[in-house]
Design a protein around this nucleic acid. Structure first.
Lengths: 259, 259
DNA sequence: AAGATATTGAACATAAATAAACATTAAGCA
DNA sequence: TGCTTAATGTTTATTTATGTTCAATATCTT
């Protein structure tokens, strides 16, 4: 309405923030005419604000980034290899049986599994806040929550008490994600995450690894398992044939889902 | 209802998601006329959302994927005396100090406190999923999550392990809610809830009860505390003067917030 | 079960939005 | 003043979202 004064840069972005806070969503056109600047400028503004985590840009405009709720904000769909992760998750969910007791890891790919849970009675144990949110209203799911200090970077609890609590369960299957897999060195993660995952795997009849192809060939300091420690590895069709062979040679079942 | 001015792409799909979350099922016709787009566009939207696992398309429309149903006693309670609860929560939040270690009960009124948390560093311990969600992204909050089986009717964990975990903390203040308060008999709740609340109160320097006026004069089987076990009781101006006097006579600080 | 009606998806067409590269302007400052 | 930098505008090819037509298919009606 009133842009009498020439607004520029940060000041304009603050106004944009005010607008999007009210309306939840804004369009490029609407903003460019309101501030009498070019579409390109608005687009640049929106991208800056997206970098700052304020909003999510999409074709035509942007939407306020809502703080909580894994799926309610669609930031997740901006995850790399989202489509691949969805198909991996879909495949993984098919491995669930009636009365299973399953562990669901704090991982975006594993989280997607909650979307494809079959209508079977299962017990879900998790330390992931997003998984809790998704399972809380699912009448088929018996949900158990692991304690500890919440870490925003993992989206869940992760400390000694988390591990102790989780060690008290016996799982029929554990669904694990990872950021780093190397068919020679094995699967790696952070110190505490490794400890927890190892505890889980010790207490699980089956360990299933969900990992998209982009994670292959990378590793960090601490290893939580070798390839052969998993019963099944589920990945997408982007996997390198060499890695595929390496996994099969180690006698591990490999499931490749096309995205 | 609809000033859906030129909603496009993702933004429209978000709205579709909101709609289907409420109604469980949507039709193509209904959506295409509501958003003033062609049927084909809606169909494409629905297919994208099906691919993402959000819903299942069928002839004529789509249905929410998640087996929803019981959209829960806990969510329903959010309605009664909402304004009163908000002002009670706002008052309660003012009792928080820098570096406090506080317990937040699974209760709708206590949950509302998370909206009014002052910009002070606090440690929040909770067994309430909603509290977790609200606090997870609050940079001032150090969040600790209590374990156990999740009960949809309480919106949080509530079992022996929950109690054991919570007993390990020392709180500067505990913020508790209740459904039943009687100035003569005391404050009552379910068996397990009582056990947990008592454990909390034993380990807390201060116990603060948040209760709107509609809860007075009611009681159930098990008591978790007498009026005088609380340092402060916060309620709204609808409280009966008799109850007000009864509380003050027992030497308990009473805070009445106008709604 | 057969015919009537409505819904669908595929192929194509079109308009709009985008990112990238480059041009221009404004602003600070030695 | 002239130099430098940051912000904005412009032009381009490319991508994306949406609309349209039509044959195939599903659902309803009797």
């Amino acid at each position: 309405m009133d842009q009498n004064t020439e607004i520029t840069g940060i000041a304009r972005r603050e106004k944009i923030y005010d607008t999007i806070k009210e309306n939840t969503t804004v369009t490029v056109k609407e903003l460019s005419s309101r501030f009498a600047v070019s579409d390109m400028t608005i687009r640049r503004d929106l991208h800056i604000m997206e970098e700052q985590g304020i909003l999510t840009v999409h074709y035509g405009g942007a939407t306020l980034r809502r703080p909580s709720m894994a799926f309610h904000s669609f930031d997740m769909r901006k995850e790399d290899f989202y489509a691949e992760k969805v198909s991996i998750a879909r495949c993984a969910a098919e491995l669930i049986h009636e009365n299973d007791v399953i562990y669901l890891d704090p991982s975006t790919t594993v989280l997607l599994m909650t979307r494809f849970l079959p209508p079977l009675h299962v017990t879900v144990v998790t330390s992931s806040l997003s998984v809790m949110e998704e399972c809380a209203h699912n009448p088929y799911v018996n949900l158990f929550i692991a304690p500890g200090k919440y870490h925003a970077e993992y989206g869940g609890t992760m400390d000694a008490e988390t591990m102790t609590y989780l060690s008290g369960f016996h799982f029929t299957s554990a669904f694990l994600g990872t950021g780093f897999i190397d068919t020679v060195y094995g699967v790696t993660s952070t110190e505490i995450d490794c400890s927890i995952k190892q505890a889980i795997m010790r207490n699980s009849e089956k360990s299933i690894l969900l990992v998209d192809h982009s994670k292959f060939g990378h590793r960090v300091m601490k290893k939580f398992g070798d390839i052969r420690d998993f019963n099944t590895i589920i990945t997408d069709s982007g996997i390198d044939p060499k890695d595929e062979r390496a996994i099969l040679q180690q006698g591990v079942k490999l499931q490749i889902c096309d995205s």
